[in-house]
Amino acid sequence: MHAETLKGHLDLLLLAAVEAAGLHGYAIIEQLNRRSQGKLDLAEGTVYPALHRLERGGLLRSSWAIAPDNGRKRRVYELTTRGRTALRTQQEEWRAFAQAMNAVLGGVS
């Protein structure tokens, strides 16, 4: 997917990536790649400012954790209650939008 297109939806993707469990930045990117089967092409560095923005907006919270494999400090992000609610709302909005787009473009509605 084109980077610019992706940018507009990055927040939603990030919220979805940490829905099940708290993850650090690298794991979030891996998660996105895995779920999208490598189709999401974005500069990995842009994920971190986006995570910080979501944290500032109260949708994520983060804490330091020690990586078990190498002992390095890692910032782990997880959803707040507000973040969970925002994720639900945005998922619904996205589905409605996608449905409308598909209907117009003649795809699956």
Binding site: H24, G25, G45, A67, K73, R74
Partner: peptide, 12 residues
Amino acid sequence: IMNEVEDHLREA
């Protein structure tokens, strides 16, 4: 920020 970025780059 530097900590997070370095961790990411080393892991990658």
